[in-house]
Amino acid sequence: MMTLQQDICNDTRKKTPLEGYNFAYLDESTKRMIRRGLLKAVAVPGYQVPFAGREMPMPCGWGTGGIQVTASVIGEEDVLKVIDQGSDDTTNAVSIRRFFAGTTGVETTTHTAEATIIQTRHRIPEHPLNENQILVYQVPLPEPLRWLEPSEKETRTLHALEEYGLMNVKIYEDIMRHGAIAMSFDYPVRVNGRYIMSPSPIPRFDNPKMHQCPALQLFGAGREKRLYAIPPYTDVKSLDFEDYPFEVQRWEEPCALCGARHTYLDEVVLDDTGRRMFVCSDSDACAENRARQGMTEVSHE
């Protein structure tokens, strides 16, 4: 049996797509419909564009929104990277990468710098993105105001009229309950000084990476059937109060594997006695770091 690592390595080369399927699974008119939605999303940064989401060969919650976006923009020459919580080798990432490898035959990679399309669940890679890249986010709940306003009609009105007092109520409640803004994931942002947007459940550590990012950022919510986007080099500001400014998470210690001090760390419990260590959540960045320092590959056993 192949290990996961072997699987990733063996899988990367460009090959012939599966027969009987259209390129990237979706039919061309569906892709065109989604691309039109994406164009509108790019034209109105942060605005949620409804689209006719299709049934995909996997359940909602597995990234069907992101997959439909990727399927609509991917071409034969693209190089695809898929991450789940920063890692290329978790189930969700592997199955989506296999899905596209099978239906498009494109080259895949785990290296951020080599990829032209990166589909992500819950992270932005540590390696800075460039103008030739598209970052596709899988979004479970696209509406940042849903927390306080159950009515879709009302939230859309609030966005349209730029009535964002409600969003600040949430921040107020956070400070009141926790003494600081405690939202650590899905921290709402204001895009291009206009729409308030949910960045999907990325850690707030990643929020600054969205600001003035050279890469195009596309968001797809499959269950809620919404698309939105941040065009390259767009202002993205994390909401905060004057006396409680936005801050990213920090850790006391560096990554236990590569020694990096400015990356997002995952806590890993090592045994039943509660020993733990902190390691980079972005497995590719961590491996690169170690390689640069001449460290040997660390076993996953």
Partner: peptide, 19 residues
């Protein structure tokens, strides 16, 4: 939401950003 936030909402809608 708390009483404080209920009172503050109109102020926040008007741009109040100081906790």
């Amino acid at each position: 939401v708390s009483a404080g936030a209920n009172i503050g909402e109109r102020l926040m809608a008007a741009g109040g950003r100081n906790y």
